[in-house]
Amino acid sequence: MRFGGAGLAAALAVGVAGSPASAQAGAPSASGVQPIEITAEQVPGGNPTFADLEELGFGDFNCAFEPFKVEPVTAGTHNFPSPINGSVTIELVNTADGPTFNFRINGEFATIGVIVKGGPNANFYDYRPDGIGSDEALHAPINPMSGDYYGLSHVDFCVIDSPYNGDNGATANS
């Protein structure tokens, strides 16, 4: 099932990237994860959730708790909801291509997916199956009018329990 979802995700990404009315997902993150643009045509309103991604055929997201949203996207440490003892630290970075951010999951957690909303669409970063404790250079889709990344509206994290992330940022694969 996981491989079938990945194939469908790749087909959706190719179809989305080939659409002339679409922005573009843009460059991969520092860890090499290529974002997949989710359009307002795929999810009305352009605000996809992990449940929407499941309905689009991206496979299952078994988050440890309700996906964690940071809105607006601000620098600093954002605590997970009580009684969960963990947080995500976000660093905002202004680049020549537009706003990006770095994140680090704090505690014995990792993220298996990040949705970055900006403009009419969103970018989805897929870190399954093991998850990741930190990454850099995540961004919203490219604004076709300017060629730069859209501004950051909000970010959703699908967080999982991960004993491999007790060092605040290592990947589960290391």
Rank of each mutant, 00 (worst) to 15 (best):
A40D: 07
T89V: 06
P20Q: 00
A110C: 08
D156A: 05
G45H: 07
N143G: 06
G15P: 01
N94R: 10
S87Y: 03
R2S: 13
G45M: 01
T39R: 06
P67A: 09
V33Y: 09
E55I: 07
F103N: 15
V155Y: 00
I132K: 13
M1I: 05
P28H: 00
E41A: 09
G86P: 06
G151I: 03
A13G: 06
G57I: 05
P35R: 07
P129E: 13
D60W: 14
S162D: 10
A137P: 03
A25W: 05
F157L: 00
M145C: 00
Q24F: 12
S29P: 01
G119C: 04
I160Y: 02
P163N: 08
A30W: 10
S162H: 01
I132A: 13
F109I: 08
G32V: 02
M1E: 07
V114K: 07
H139L: 04
A122I: 11
N102I: 08
L152A: 02
V70I: 15
K69W: 03
D97I: 05
S29R: 02
F103A: 15
Q42L: 09
S153K: 10
P72D: 09
N121W: 03
I90A: 09
R104S: 13
N165M: 05
E91T: 15
G26T: 06
G7L: 10
N121V: 02
P120V: 00
N47G: 02
F61Y: 15
N123R: 09
P120A: 01
Y125K: 12
F50L: 12
H78F: 05
F101I: 11
G46A: 00
Y125S: 11
A13S: 11
D161Y: 14
Q24D: 11
G7P: 00
M145T: 13
Y127C: 07
N94K: 15
S174P: 08
F68S: 10
L138K: 08
I38V: 15
D156L: 13
G57D: 08
I84G: 04
D60V: 12
A23L: 07
I105T: 13
A75G: 15
N85H: 07
A137T: 06
N143T: 08
G46K: 06
K69N: 10
D148W: 09
F3H: 12
F101Y: 14
G4M: 12
S146H: 03
A21T: 14
G15C: 03
P144N: 05
S174W: 04
T171E: 10
E41S: 13
P28W: 01
A9G: 14
S174L: 06
P129Q: 11
G32I: 03
I160D: 05
P44F: 03
S153D: 15
N79E: 15
Q24E: 09
G86R: 03
C158E: 08
P28M: 01
C158R: 02
A23R: 05
L152W: 00
T77E: 14
C63D: 10
T100F: 02
F157N: 02
N106F: 01
S22Q: 12
L53R: 13
N173P: 00
Y149H: 15
F3A: 14
S82N: 14
M145W: 03
G113T: 07
G15M: 04
A40C: 04
D167E: 06
P129C: 07
F80A: 06
A23P: 08
F65P: 11
